[in-house]
């Protein structure tokens, strides 16, 4: 799940599948409303872009033993910057995210991308991949945030004007009484994310059933490496 060394960040589908599991802490913690989800998503995206670019530029200078502490320091510096920028932009919003704004540092998504992608590719390539990863993180965060807000409180896009000054009357009421108040609690967060993942798995597996079964490979044509680990 967090085996960063073996991840493949290339395809878009992989990214969407990975983001819920790597960025689990912030994903569940701030997805209780669309505004928190979007704000933390944007902050994470900017930290991801900055740190990927820096690590990719410096990738030939790290010695293996000091690699991880160096990545952590770079990510921590960018997170501090993002924290101060958000506090300057809207202090109420920064208060709302609370502990999870500085905790962007400990998002496994960023460290995983640094370790498995940014440290091996030139800066522009790393930047492009980081953009894709960050946007898919925002997408998952926003979907879960909207779902939890709508089901748990019955209204959607409350206080959107904290982040977007023009969004003063975006709030609308979906349900007169909240249909599923549990959605706002930690338990509801776990359950809803589980159902989202299961939903995605279901649709991923469906087309496979309609396709004709692939022709069996001739025996002995493929060498399989046996590692003893399952």
């Amino acid at each position: 799940m967090t085996a960063t060394a073996t991840l493949n960040f290339n395809s878009c589908r992989d990214k969407l599948a990975l983001t819920p599991l790597l960025g689990l802490c912030p994903l569940l913690a701030v997805s209780n409303s669309a505004i928190s989800a979007l704000t933390l998503g944007l902050c994470t995206l900017s930290v991801l872009l900055g740190s990927s670019f820096c690590i990719s530029l410096l990738r030939n200078r790290f010695t293996p033993a000091l690699r991880l502490p160096a990545y952590m320091l770079i990510i921590a510096s960018f997170t501090s910057c993002a924290e101060f920028l958000l506090q300057a932009y809207s202090y109420a919003l920064a208060e709302r995210l609370g502990l999870f704004l500085p905790l962007i540092v400990s998002n496994c998504l960023i460290l995983g991308h640094a370790e498995s992608f940014a440290s091996k590719t030139p800066p522009l390539h790393a930047l492009r991949d980081a953009l894709g990863l960050g946007l898919s993180f925002i997408l998952v965060l926003l979907v879960l945030g909207m779902l939890r807000e709508a089901l748990g409180s019955g209204r959607l896009f409350t206080n959107m004007d904290l982040l977007l000054p023009f969004a003063t009357n975006w709030e609308f009421i979906c349900f007169n009484s909240p249909p599923f108040p549990l959605a706002l609690t930690p338990s509801g967060a776990f359950l809803l994310l589980a159902f989202l993942i299961a939903f995605k798995n279901y649709f991923d597996q469906r087309p496979a059933q309609h396709q004709p079964a692939p022709e069996p490979e001739p025996a002995g044509s493929k060498r399989v490496r046996v590692t003893g680990q399952v």
Binding site: M1, P20, L21, L182, T185, P186, S187, G188, A189, F190, L191, L193, A194, F195, I197, A198, F199, N201, Y202, Q205
Partner: peptide, 23 residues
């Protein structure tokens, strides 16, 4: 476990029920 729930999803359901108990 139902096929779509295998892997991460059932673990999250388990954690969700534990969180419910801790509430």
């Amino acid at each position: 476990v139902p096929v779509p729930f295998q892997g991460a999803a059932i673990s999250l359901v388990t954690a969700g029920l534990m969180a419910l108990a801790f509430m």
